[in-house]
Amino acid sequence: MVRVLVVLYISINIFSITQAVAERSGKLETKAILITTHPNEGPVKGDFEYGEYLAAECVTCHSATGKDKGIPPITGWDAEGFISVMNAYKIKDLENPAMQLIAARLDEEQMASLALYFATLPEAE
């Protein structure tokens, strides 16, 4: 039950981030299955230093201080939430083509490293 809630939450969170429209809510079901069939058990494994290096690509657009100006802040995110959102871009469930491009070439370790790094930065105000 908790897992379902989490998955639902992630989906809702993804939607609010991208300001996706309510008409897509039919997709929630699919996302839930996608994520529950590959549950992310235990703590995320990644390398902080690698994450910091990879993050340099992100902060060209997503301000490192988390300021939100047309591009959502990604600092201070929970690591698992971060990975879920990136995976949703990777499988093109979320629509921004720039993000799909970035996510497409991130493997599991890279995503986890990024997630670890951004989780340590202060959350946007």
Partner: peptide, 22 residues
């Protein structure tokens, strides 16, 4: 659509990134 903030999200997940441990 209800917007849940990330702090609530972390609480819900019950996981917080252990920055100090990294």
């Amino acid at each position: 659509m209800t917007k849940i903030n990330r702090r609530q999200f972390s609480a819900l997940l019950g996981t917080t990134a252990a920055a100090g441990a990294l």
